[in-house]
Nucleic acid binder design. Structure first.
Lengths: 251, 251
DNA sequence: GCACGGCACTTGGTAGACAGTCTACCAAGT
DNA sequence: ACTTGGTAGACTGTCTACCAAGTGCCGTGC
């Protein structure tokens, strides 16, 4: 799994290089399409993904599909069983917990480095996002809240200036969002209060404080998930609606 | 070396190959072979990797090579330029620094969780590794020291019980070792003193202390690298023997 | 009801083909 | 001498076709 970025220029391109247009490889588009379909539930968890079927669905040949599936496997979206094929990954119960723990470490460190390297512009953008996010939250716009939350967090990781932290965090974040979107609305107000404190610490350049707040912040999210999980989920029924599917053969 | 056994087209198997049952996908073997060749310098940094060439070299067809290359690209070992191909990644100067910073975060968190979950057996194994490592270090066995150091660190990350931390740390570690092996022997004695303190903290279940020590430990390594880098490397000449030829045709 | 055998399906890997693109090189023009 | 234009070769990205081996499923026979 894992994509440790592999930017073509590895960073320091001369200032004004504007590469025109590069038709993205087909495998890339296939990869995007499949993750999308996995996240939005078109491809249910545990479903057997047949190469030729996907190929037909997307209008390409087997090759790009295979390459996309390999990558999805590496990144943990599907499980590739040799000789049988790919199944959409079914998360273990402790997996979200582990993801959130990993995210806590990554984002906490990012916040530390962000506090170290923050510029005036960065801080201004952070403040703006806080304001917007709080507004969304108060107006009950869940979609906007979630989106702004994501933007804030990803901006902070990017401010760390550490490509690996950015990559890892992005990966973890995407997985978390797939597994458990609805945690965000649960703890809305408190979350944005914490964001404000965090941005303040960053603006003051207080590394330890920023790291500490971010750790507590993500840890709160983990707790919130945990409570909600144990409270609202009595049995082994991930989705009450999707259960009666019976390994349907494609007709 | 580098020839992947089990080549159906190759035929010429050396005498001692155990062909017991190898359902290992070829792409996996190709991936391993290529990382090996990258790490040991057979494939120099910046070199253009031609699919058919590698395929011939390893006795397989293009497809497994392609799949391996894409994984290598995802993990940052090579850079894949669309329409041109793969080049062995040339690390930017700040990259090792970023890797070590990421490792600090990951291993520090691992140490914290290891302290939380440590069993008696774990601690015993840690103590054993410390003893062995110190012995290697004192006897001047660099190879053994480095190996034991790796085993100790990977044991600690595994003790965290967090698969993602393990994966990320392993990946980062592998990259670090590629970029900069010789940092280990530089700071030998101090390193193992720190290891001992770390194991003590873990055995006592002191999470914060374990995390703190691990952070300082990796941070020391980062500093050591940094000093050694600025002090001992005047120019851009990683290997005096590596031909500075421009795009040399392969013979 | 259960073990066994066979069948269909799917993957993993190979081979070959072809268009698009990238690089280098060479030649002609200014 | 320097730029422009063209050419040729090389390599990737993708497609098609094909085959061997492995897997799960199903029906048969007991």
């Amino acid at each position: 799994m894992t994509t440790i970025s592999a930017g073509p220029g590895a960073g320091a391109e001369p200032a004004g290089v504007r590469h025109v247009k590069r038709p993205t490889p087909l495998r890339e588009s296939v990869y995007e399409a499949l993750t999308e379909m996995i996240i939005d539930g078109t491809l249910e968890r545990g479903r057997h993904l047949v190469e030729v079927e996907l190929a037909g669905l997307l209008g390409v040949s087997r090759q790009p599909v295979r390459e996309a599936l390999q990558r999805l496997n590496n990144e943990g979206w599907v499980d590739l069983r040799p000789g049988f094929g790919a199944m959409v990954h079914v998360p273990a119960e402790d997996e979200v917990d582990q993801l959130l723990a990993a995210r806590a470490a990554l984002e906490s460190e990012s916040a530390r480095l962000a506090a170290r390297h923050a510029t005036k512009e960065d801080v201004a953008r952070l403040r703006e996002l806080c304001k917007v996010g709080t507004a969304y939250q108060e107006s009950g716009d869940i979609d906007g809240t979630v989106r702004t939350n994501g933007e804030l967090h990803s901006l902070i990781t990017e401010m760390s200036g550490n490509r690996f932290l950015v990559d890892f965090a992005a990966q973890v974040d995407r997985r978390v969002r797939w597994y458990y979107t609805p945690v965000a609305p649960v703890r809305g107000a408190a979350s944005w209060r914490e964001h404000n404190r965090l941005v303040k610490a960053i603006s003051e350049g207080d590394e330890d404080k920023a790291a500490q707040i971010m750790r507590e912040h993500t840890e709160h999210t983990r707790k919130a998930y945990h409570d909600l999980q144990s409270g609202a989920e009595p049995a082994e029924t991930p989705e009450p609606e999707a259960a009666p599917r019976r390994r349907r053969r494609t007709t």
